[in-house]
């Protein structure tokens, strides 16, 4: 009976999982179709695959430029964020003081400010500082809006690292620098890596500011894909190919970091 139930649950789970993934699979199929096949009715499951769409988006639409913007913005914002967040999380986890709790909760509260509530001032500030349509503006915004999440996530990782080990290495005569480099870093490296991964995922998929603050020069992939919503963008096969390329790397990152992600996105409330 129990065995039967497990099999039933497994069957249901697999059906739902496949249905749930189907839009992504359908997009992958469409990216190998010709434009005529992509809009064909009834929908086409078997066809002669072509790589023409992938060639076209590189040749006709400067895909590389948008991809470069996405990569540059995500990586720079993440590095900047680690530079600021790691020391803060380290200090609060290993040397908690009277105000640690308040600081952490206050940081969390800054994340609650809806982006749209400050669209106007950010837009005007960017304009006045000459930062409209620059990667700099997006790097700064992504850095700041993910900083609270990063501090929290790192904090929860650091706190699980035994403090005694630091004491022990200090007693054994290691300096602060040596302790951090040889004892602490190897222990917290996985936590830092998954925080960086989550940050890259969030920056990569950030759409609100990309759509509102960039035009062409600094536009990342989220904005590039949005340009397909215009009437002249009714190239479904090409849209699919561009989309596949835009989501593939991040999808892999997401699969790798799915477990740590929960902790980061719920601020440690669910582990």
């Amino acid at each position: 009976m129990n065995r039967f139930k497990t099999q039933l649950a497994g069957g249901i789970a697999w059906i739902i999982a496949i249905l749930n993934f189907f839009p992504i699979f359908w997009m992958l199929l469409a990216s190998f179709k010709s434009e005529v096949e992509a809009v064909q009715t009834p929908p086409l499951f078997f066809f002669h695959p072509t790589l023409a769409n992938y060639r076209d988006i590189f040749a006709l639409q400067d895909y590389a430029g948008y991809a470069f913007n996405s990569i540059a913005i995500s990586v720079l914002a993440t590095l900047l964020m680690l530079l600021v967040a790691v020391p803060a999380a380290f200090a609060m986890a290993f040397y908690p003081g009277r105000y640690t709790r308040d600081i952490l909760l206050w940081m969390l509260s800054t994340k609650m400010l809806p982006a749209v509530g400050v669209l106007v001032p950010i837009y005007l500030l960017s304009r006045d500082l000459g930062l409209l349509d620059t990667r700099t503006a997006l790097v700064i915004i992504d850095f700041l809006s993910n900083l609270p999440i990063a501090v929290w996530m790192l904090f929860t990782f650091f706190r699980e690292t035994p403090k005694d080990i630091i004491e022990a290495s200090r007693i054994d005569g290691a300096g602060v620098g040596q302790t951090i480099l040889y004892v602490l870093l190897p222990l917290v490296a996985p936590g830092i890596a998954s925080t960086a991964l989550l940050s890259i995922i969030l920056c990569w998929n950030e759409a609100f500011w990309s759509l509102n603050l960039t035009a062409h020069n600094a536009a990342p992939l989220t904005a590039f894909i949005a340009s397909f919503s215009a009437p002249q963008g009714l190239f479904w096969a090409r849209l699919s190919a561009a989309s596949v390329l835009a989501i593939a790397p991040i999808l892999v990152f997401g699969w790798i970091s799915q477990r740590q992600l929960v902790r980061g996105l719920t601020f440690g409330a669910v582990k």
């Binding site: 649950a9 759409a207 894909i225 949005a226 919503s229």
Partner: peptide, 28 residues
Amino acid sequence: SGFPGQGIARVLMISPFFVMPTVSALIW
């Protein structure tokens, strides 16, 4: 409930979350 292939099925389940919003919207 722990069924065969659970890991892969879970990956299929969570994938949409990593798709950027503009892609999801236009594909749908």
